[in-house]
Design a protein around this nucleic acid. Structure first.
Lengths: 139, 139
DNA sequence: TATTGTTATACTCTATAACTATA
DNA sequence: TATAGTTATAGAGTATAACAATA
């Protein structure tokens, strides 16, 4: 089988396409996909420690620091001291962050839709399930 | 649906896993996955111009220069002048490159096999087909 | 002792622009 | 004027190690 049909090559390429399309779509919000992923989780949970963010997103804690710094500087999240543990900082979305997160989600969804245009809804569901099973071991 | 079930996030994460596993598997050959991809195509074709490599792999020509430089320095490929066009350099594998490419292919296949362990053969085929259709537009 | 967040560092990957030599 | 390869540069992503504060 030709190298370009290798599943690893295809996945890397499809992922790159999707990241590029999503970054382009999020540009108007001043976000990139990694910052957006942190904002999304924080909006969803209403507040997460950086350790939780690292675990959920599969990132190193030091990367989370930088991403939260970016979102903080943009006024989209705040670090609040945890009442239970003074080592922990709870990252919570600001009002602006919630609004930006919602707009960004719409734009990201559109970029995803366009990138996955060749697939039917059923095929997208299949793809999601297969990818989820591949990544499950590292979650 | 939770953000971590987003198909873009899952694809990015699965792709990252696969690249890491493959890089680890190729380390003993002194290769990384991008250099390996160039070597694979060159071994397959028996000789490709850098422009062809860029097109087939979806890379910028300047990236191909660097990757071919690496493979050249390792003695795995050679740049030969094209008889038809003096601007063009044909990248051909050396004997060592062919041998390294075969060993690397075996190791990369094993890393892929382990990363895709949760999927059946049929599911892997489905995944490949879906990814190929997503990437087709940019080929 | 272990954990949370942080800083520092280095390397890889990605993206662009500009240059040369040839066509 | 356009194309193949190259160089240069900057920014983004990834990977580790070490540290202070706190548990």
């Amino acid at each position: 089988m030709p190298f370009v049909d290798n599943i690893g090559f295809l996945m890397s390429r499809a992922s790159g396409q999707l990241v590029r399309a999503t970054n382009a779509a999020l540009g108007s919000e001043g976000l990139r996909v990694r910052q957006y992923s942190v904002l999304s989780v924080v909006c969803e949970s209403g507040g997460s420690s950086q350790r939780e963010l690292a675990a959920v997103l599969g990132l190193d804690p030091s990367q989370v620091v930088a991403l939260v710094d970016d979102l903080d500087a943009a006024g989209l999240v705040e670090r609040r001291p945890s009442p239970a543990d003074r080592r922990t900082k709870v990252v919570v979305p600001t009002e602006a962050g919630i609004a930006a997160g919602e707009r960004a989600a719409g734009r990201a969804a559109k970029a995803l839709e366009e990138t996955l245009a060749p697939l039917t809804d059923e095929e997208r569901a299949t793809l999601r399930t297969l990818l989820a099973r591949v990544t499950f071991a590292t979650r």
